[in-house]
Design a protein around this nucleic acid. Sequence first.
DNA 1: AGAAGTTGATATTTATAGATATCAACAATA
DNA 2: TATTGTTGATATCTATAAATATCAACTTCT
Lengths: 146, 146
Amino acid sequence: MFQNLNQDEPIFPIRAAAQLLKISVHTLRMYEREGLIIPFKKESSHRLYSQTDLKRIECIRRAINEMKISINGIKTMYSLIPCWEIMGCSEENRKNCKSYNEHSKPCWGYAHEKNVCEEKKCRDCEVYKKHSQCGEIKELIKSISR
Amino acid sequence: MFQNLNQDEPIFPIRAAAQLLKISVHTLRMYEREGLIIPFKKESSHRLYSQTDLKRIECIRRAINEMKISINGIKTMYSLIPCWEIMGCSEENRKNCKSYNEHSKPCWGYAHEKNVCEEKKCRDCEVYKKHSQCGEIKELIKSISR
DNA sequence: AGAAGTTGATATTTATAGATATCAACAATA
DNA sequence: TATTGTTGATATCTATAAATATCAACTTCT
């Protein structure tokens, strides 16, 4: 089912997404409020979820329910993602970047002012898209050191 | 009090350490079982804690109780420490190292066989000693990428 | 027009992590 | 020798994270 659709196409309204994931819509909004996910929003502010979004959320649920990592733990882990390397931030950028200088939530949880992220939408950013699991984050850390 | 003592000298038996930290001895043993701390042990297998150990434990308690990061979250964070960079592990070392290839607990939680860690005591290792807080881990990740 | 969405506040349920305690058999300490 | 420590198992308490639900006023979809 759905194989022939573009995996990144945001097509599921919140209720449908919740049903597919077997959780409540409240939980989905909670994850969003905590900064774990960024669903697509049309002009109307209605949320839409893609297949990729659902996979990401399943991964987050495994972290919480099976690996027993708390939501704040996940946020802190996300804050360790070396986004500055992926984005190629200048020294000046780094100096002004809260994400670079703090470690309580993911970079996509900050309002990006006056830096390379200012123009970009976090939902479409490689940093957000490629690093939802701890394994991926560790691989990234490995890769930047060689 | 205690200022004139060597901060790294293991002098407090478990009960004294627990009293200073205002927690139970069970909690101290639990942190050890979870791999968060490595108290000094004399031949007799009695634990002794240094001032530095106490500071480390206070830091861990802040992470759990104030930052609301679960113990499994802390373990996962520790697993992201690029120990292979600090220790200068060879490609061969890395290939055989569980710590390098997994991400569920800190490197000092593994039995080190056939690698550069084999001879060393983790308690005395820079990786263990210098990186008990998320801020320190993030600084380390920053430093290996330049 | 009716269904489904929005934000925001508030409240409740449930599962369990974190912490504490107890008992046993034994070893080391001072 | 009395105290304090060890491991291991087991049991309980408590605080709270995670999840769910409800209500209100409003907006957007089909």
